[in-house]
């Protein structure tokens, strides 16, 4: 067993029994979404429980970013429901949604740090907007989160002066500054070298341990998914292929999943009529 693997296995992981009895934090029922006339997600059902790390995996165009946007309330579903902490995301008032969002943290793929603010100001922003704490307390809280993500000492740097790994850390610090109950991470390891990527995975595991939050990670990085996930949901063309533990997914008999895990390209099946319609743009 490698050192990294040994370290990962020594970390806290909730058992299947723990998860079965934990309260649901996110409940997605029969979720259907469209972009224009095109249906992207076709009746998705997922449940994420307290303290669970759920990894949503899939190839390009599988619908994982669309699912994340729907979960964040950035995309209104056509039908179905998303309940977060017991509240239907699309049936609550604006004020209720604002309050609910204070219990959710999001680390975007590119960080989405505000370029006009330095790192500390970026991390302090949710506190400034949603609390009446004095400035010194906010600074202390933001510095504490910077310590958690190993970014202490970089308070005054601007986002443009940060490396890729530092941007991800700063984004995570901002996402957890309000002590959310649910954390969403969009491609946390994308674009990072393997060492930094592994450090970010460790950080996600540490956050779960320290703050007992539920974490939803959208990624297509297999190694990262296997390292951090309690359960993995594999999406393909807007359908769920499987939801299960790392071992269940690894040993799934599903051909698409095995192709994804083994990086095997799937042959493109071209319908001649469909191709002709696309060429001549009949439906556009």
């Amino acid at each position: 067993m490698t050192h990294a693997a040994a370290e990962t296995s020594s970390r806290y992981r909730p058992s299947a029994a723990d998860l079965a009895t934990a309260s649901p934090m996110i409940e997605i029922r029969d979720l259907v979404t469209h972009y224009g006339k095109r249906e992207i997600l076709h009746g998705i059902n997922i449940e994420v429980r307290q303290g669970e790390i759920m990894v949503i995996m899939g190839g390009s165009g599988s619908g994982k970013s669309t699912l994340l946007n729907a979960l964040l309330g950035l995309l209104r579903p056509t039908s179905g429901s998303i309940r977060i902490l017991g509240q239907d995301l699309n049936a609550i008032t604006d004020i209720e949604r604002t309050k609910l969002r204070q219990k959710m943290g999001v680390a975007f793929q590119g960080g989405a740090l505000f370029s006009s603010l330095n790192v500390l100001e970026n991390i302090m922003l949710p506190l400034k907007e949603h609390t009446r704490l004095d400035r010194n307390t906010m600074r202390i809280m933001a510095r504490m989160k910077m310590q958690v993500v190993s970014l202490a000492g970089f308070e005054n740097l601007m986002p443009a002066e940060l490396s890729g790994g530092m941007i991800k850390r700063a984004a995570l610090a901002r996402a957890i500054v309000m002590d959310p109950r649910i954390l969403f991470c969009d491609e946390p390891s994308a674009g990072l070298d393997p060492v930094v990527s592994s450090a970010i995975d460790d950080l996600i595991l540490t956050l779960r341990e320290a703050m007992d939050m539920s974490i939803v990670v959208v990624t297509h990085e297999l190694e990262s998914a296997f390292k951090i996930a309690d359960r993995i949901c594999v999406l393909d063309k807007g359908h769920i292929l499987t939801i299960g533990t790392v071992d269940e997914v690894r040993h799934s008999p599903n051909e698409h999943i095995q192709n994804l895990l083994n990086r095997r390209a799937e042959p493109e099946i071209l319908d001649p009529d469909e191709y002709l319609r696309w060429l001549t743009a009949v439906n556009q």
Partner: peptide, 22 residues
Amino acid sequence: GTMRISQEIDALSVMGINPVRF
């Protein structure tokens, strides 16, 4: 425009900060 393509506007929304107000 830059804030939009770098997802800063989305970040504001998910932080519960109204982009029009901000």
